[in-house]
């Protein structure tokens, strides 16, 4: 198990967004969280990546506690521990958030070299391997504005992979892509899973979830409505809300 989320609660002002969300992710597993917009999908991802602090709950990443519920509130890891946890987490943003003033190569090696002290040579070697794997070798010296949406996404994946994460999160990976690129990103995600990385992807793209996910969680109004294997989920959709969403 590389990620465990237990009894997660989060409110913005007085508006509860997450109400007791729990799930787990195994190494090499592809888990899709699906649900309508506003259901709390992005908040889950932001909590898991410590971009938003949860109110209550426990998040464990590869044996380390990002935050731990002590019965009244959630206690977060200290700074040095947090850095170790960050290393285990990769996040590909919906709009990628590449650094526009840095070349593709710089985007990838910046954090390993300047945050984690990886020797330059090793960082560049790893980056070159990633670029090769993602078919971007000729783009190493390009800048983000020169890339297409699909290429930017692959750079974002390379950047997130540069620290050898155990968990890779992808926020709406198909939303910025042309339809014909969806199979490509599906294959890339499968490749990452084969390396033993746990993949957590959030999407409202049912067809894509069906194509790539091993397991699906449906979330609505801050609660998990149903979580099951893909076959069960798509074969036997009982819940009314899920059916309604699927029909949309």
């Amino acid at each position: 198990m590389v990620l465990r989320v237990e009894n997660l609660y989060k409110s913005f002002k007085d508006n509860p967004v997450l109400k007791n969300v729990s799930f787990q992710l195994q190494a090499g597993e592809i888990l899709a969280i699906i649900g309508p917009s506003g259901a709390g999908k992005t908040t889950i991802l932001r909590c898991v990546n410590n971009l938003t602090n949860c109110d209550r709950g426990t998040i464990e990443v590869d044996g380390m506690y990002l935050c731990r519920d002590d019965g009244s509130r959630s206690i977060y890891a200290k700074q040095d521990e947090m850095l170790q946890i960050r290393k285990k987490l990769g996040l590909v943003f919906q709009n990628f958030n590449l650094f526009p003033h840095m070349s593709v190569m710089q985007n990838i090696v910046e954090a390993p070299i300047n945050v984690f002290g990886t020797p330059r040579e090793d960082a560049f070697k790893k980056a070159n391997e990633l670029l090769k794997m993602l078919g971007l070798t000729d783009k190493a010296d390009s800048y983000p504005f020169e890339l297409s949406g699909g290429q930017k996404q692959r750079v974002a994946i390379a950047r997130a992979c540069a620290l050898n994460p155990k968990v890779m999160c992808l926020d709406e990976p198909t939303s910025a892509l042309d339809p014909e690129l969806r199979e490509g990103i599906a294959l890339t995600i499968e490749d990452l899973a084969k390396e033993g990385i746990g993949i957590l992807l959030i999407t409202h793209d049912m067809a894509f979830a069906k194509r790539v996910a091993h397991r699906v969680i449906f979330i609505d109004d801050g609660k998990i409505i149903e979580g099951s294997s893909k076959e069960e989920f798509f074969g036997n959709i009982e819940d009314n809300r899920i059916r309604k969403f699927m029909a949309l």
Binding site: K87, L91, N97, N114, V115
Partner: peptide, 25 residues
């Protein structure tokens, strides 16, 4: 704001985020 998020998930401190990511832009 996404630039700050991206820097944060990559482990940048607020100071380094400002110096290396924000200020050059």
């Amino acid at each position: 704001k996404g630039q700050y998020d991206a820097a944060k998930v990559l482990g940048f401190t607020p100071f380094n985020t400002f110096i290396r990511i924000i200020l050059p832009q």
